[in-house]
């Protein structure tokens, strides 16, 4: 559910099904028949789709519940955080209380901002976005995360915050657990 390439694959698969259905209708738009002949099928399709899509939506919603990124859900999933780190955003940089971390243990990032809205996003060494939380003035947002592997991770700002937005990065060095 959280691999962007898999999500892209799902989009393309669903998009292909939709495009195929749409194209069939377009190709079969000639040779007219009275619309009354279609009404019963149309209603059947509608009821079927409503049931099917609503069922899928409910299943996806239920599946998403144990994977919520909010602090309470992550604590329940990963266990209580063993380290708490503060991350304060300021145009255009990060003040992070500690940048050397350990893999395999739950870490809580207490994220806030001194000026405008920012977004504390952690990228893995391969450049893949792992998790994120907004840094908001007047609020402390708690992000609980467990690094699965050692390496150098990059923090990027993902909420537009002015002309230095694209330069607002920091490094986190994650070491293997002793």
């Amino acid at each position: 559910m959280q691999n962007p390439h898999v999500i892209f694959g799902v989009l393309i698969a669903l998009g292909a099904v939709w495009t195929l259905g749409w194209a069939i209708i377009m190709v079969r738009s000639g040779r007219s028949i009275p619309v009354e002949q279609l009404e019963r099928s149309e209603n059947r399709i509608r009821v079927g789709l409503l049931g099917g899509l609503a069922a899928i939506a409910i299943v996806v919603f239920v599946l998403s519940l144990p994977r919520l990124p909010f602090a309470g859900s992550r604590r329940a999933e990963l266990g209580p955080p063993q380290v708490t780190i503060t991350a304060t955003a300021v145009q255009w940089g990060w003040i992070i209380s500690r940048d050397r971390l350990t893999a395999g243990i739950p870490i809580e990032f207490d994220v806030t901002s001194r000026d405008v809205n920012h977004d504390f996003a952690i990228y893995d060494p391969d450049g893949r976005l792992l998790t994120q939380v907004q840094a908001m003035p007047g609020y402390i947002n708690r992000l609980v995360y467990r690094f699965s592997a050692p390496g150098t991770y990059t923090v990027r700002c993902l909420e537009y915050c002015g002309v230095g937005h694209h330069m607002m990065t920091a490094r986190l060095t994650v070491a293997r657990q002793e």
Partner: peptide
Amino acid sequence: TIPVNQVLHNTMW
């Protein structure tokens, strides 16, 4: 979808 949004929010998606 909230868990999906965690890795797509404010990307080019």
